[in-house]
Amino acid sequence: MGKVIVVTSGKGGVGKTTSTANLGTALALLGKTVAVVDADVGLRNLDIVMGLESRIVYTSMDVIEKQCELSKALVRDRRVDGLMLLAASQKNNKDDIQPEQMKAICDKLRTTHDFVLVDSPAGIERGFSNASAGADEAIVVTTPDVSAIRDADRIIGLLQNARIEPINLVLNRFSPQLVGNGSMMDQADVLDILNIELIGVVPEDSGVITSTNRGIPLVYEDGSPGAQAYMRIARRLTGQRIPIHNFEQKGILNNILNWFTRKR
């Protein structure tokens, strides 16, 4: 039986879909069978971020309305073994799906996949309850800024009420340089506020933009810091113990540099 993990954040634009695409691909690269599910009905994007937009025929809505079998609605990613996408309907809205229907889909997918990653829409309304309905665990994505962290805290409260655990934090778009000169909260600050387990820090990486432009998840290119960060998180999800990477710049030279570039 596979695990169902909801990828969520509260606030939009912090990297939920990018994280789902990269973690799903990374897990498949590690040899796991993975289904990634877009739960953002009406505003689907996981397909285009993963480069599979031209191959979508059926969506989760068709499965719910019994227009097609679940296995037929899954789009196989041909670049790696064991990776499937279930797209969201673009012409429906979030209220057209019930939480129990999403849960039924997740429960079916977990019988054939090691991991089911559900990409949640932003917000705390129906879309979020649908996305988290079938989840055992959660990944909360946040960036180190006040609005994303405040919304993450709200989502964590809702996940805890729904008895979804563990809830793991991905700290995205982390800039060692900004942390160094005091303009960005570091991981200790964020953890002190949110008080959940950190599963990984993803540094700001312009490669994310180009990889999204091309529809090729970053993890296919080993070299980039973002890809390495997502690979480490995927390994942790499979149970490997890997220490959290420390991106903060240390050393006297950096301290001197930071002193000159410091901002308030």
Binding site: D145, V146, G157, G182, D189, R264
Partner: peptide, 22 residues
């Protein structure tokens, strides 16, 4: 007499508002 770093201001403000939210 230097101004505090903006990151520590952010943390302080967040702590206050999140305690209220909770």
């Amino acid at each position: 007499g230097r101004k505090p770093k903006s990151s520590s201001i952010a943390k302080q403000r967040l702590k206050l508002v999140i305690t209220q939210d909770r």
